[in-house]
Design a protein around this nucleic acid. Structure first.
Lengths: 241, 241
DNA sequence: ACAAAAGTGTTCGTCGTACACCCATGG
DNA sequence: CCATGGGTGTACGACGAACACTTTTGT
């Protein structure tokens, strides 16, 4: 077995988390102090990644990045693009960083994204932080573009594949489902029409259970049945928003 | 500048061509004669590929593969997946081939597809041949899966992005457009309803021109206006089939 | 009793669908 | 004049969009 890392090839993961306030991305701090701690030469954020190994599949690399950060064992992983520009490293900062790590200027990265409810991830490490997708900090390399691309891909897939259910709790209320769509698509949806459309979908099954909120009318809970969904032959939109 | 090839990393291209009889894939013959010409040890087909270079973008690699085969200079290129399984090479044949070429067992390929009217490509080399997607020959490596994946991706994108117009002539009749959709999606479409829907789209512009067919009523020609399409802000389906 | 979020129905217009015949041309 | 593919219209039902008030609970 060959344990060599593949030069010039890395795997990167965009980690999305959905909270009641919208969609977030998990980023890792990148700092480089050449002189004194108070004056970092580089102090920005990146998405997480690692170099690809010849004895690991790309999916295994992506999974292990995700697991090591989140400690989660169930997740939905989507490969959405591979970046291979010769000049992906453009700024002095990025060159400096690359040299300081003894890396070759990377020429290629296979990019994945992961989605889940933001609250499922307990951050223990100060190097990681959630940022709203609408207010990203300064990012290294071409990671801004990678995150944008991931979001675009998510928007497309969410209409056609049952990814939305990975962004919310297993048991969810219809309003939570609506807010999930609104957050990802960045639109507003009429609540009455949305409910009617959702209830037509046989793979969204009501439970005899309610969630008692904080001093409010309790809300009915639903689950997504992947079994039923897989048996639906004529694939339509997930919800016809 | 670094001219080294990237070990273990290649770029592969699925080339689709649309003819009146349906969708085709262009394949390259793979033969290996260890003893006598009449008894090839390997005699099957593959999609075209080359190893990635560190001084070339992936897109440049894909383009040069496509251009060298087809001599075309205008085309639509779609990156759809990157395959990185450690065990992509499974059969004795594939191992034998890899060794005979002095290659390492490849671990990764970035896959693209190209679409255009089949008649635009004049084949000069006997090593290349068109096969209907519904009747593929024996294929090397995991190229069957790659072609299947490409077709799936094409089916999805064709509803949402204006790729269909790259599969047909610049000036086209509505019936040609309909047949293009039918071939790619593998469905039948009602002609009258299809026309009504197409004519609603402002980016499909009628010409004051007809094509005189072979002893038939001449048919009106249309073009796709990418300019108009790009100005349409509320993106809908290309045609609401 | 009130604050807060959950939940509910109707009307109208548009769009999708099903369906069968006439038209223009070249030979 | 006929064979061939090009081109057209209507009726019906389903679905999407717009829109405001009642219900249930905890405090």
């Amino acid at each position: 077995m060959d344990f060599r890392k593949l030069d010039n090839v890395s795997v990167n993961c965009v980690i999305f988390g959905l909270g009641p306030e919208g969609l977030y991305v998990l980023l890792q701090k990148r700092t480089l102090n050449m002189f004194r701690k108070e004056y970092p030469v580089i102090d920005d954020w990146v998405i997480t990644g690692e170099r690809a190994f010849t004895n690991k599949t790309l999916e295994e690399s992506a999974n292990s990045i995700f697991k090591s950060i989140t400690n989660l064992n169930e997740f939905n992983r989507v490969q959405f693009h591979t970046y291979g520009n010769t000049s992906r490293i453009k700024t002095d900062k990025d060159l400096l960083w690359t040299k300081s790590k003894g890396l070759k200027a990377q020429s290629m990265t296979i990019a994945y994204y992961f989605v889940q409810p933001k609250k499922n991830i307990q951050l223990t490490d100060d190097d990681f932080k959630w940022f709203p997708v609408k207010a990203l900090p300064e990012l290294g390399f071409d990671h801004k573009k990678i995150i944008d691309d991931a979001q675009e891909d998510l928007k497309q897939k969410i209409m056609v594949e049952p990814i939305i259910f990975d962004l919310i709790s297993h048991k969810f209320t219809l309003n939570e489902l609506q807010i999930a769509f609104e957050s990802v698509l960045n639109i507003e949806i009429d609540n009455r029409n949305f409910r009617k459309k959702v209830l037509k979908k046989i793979y969204i099954v009501p439970l005899n259970e309610t969630r008692k909120g904080n001093a409010k009318k309790p809300s009915k809970l639903y689950v997504f049945s992947r079994d039923v969904y897989n048996k639906v032959t004529e694939k339509d939109l997930i919800i016809n928003i």
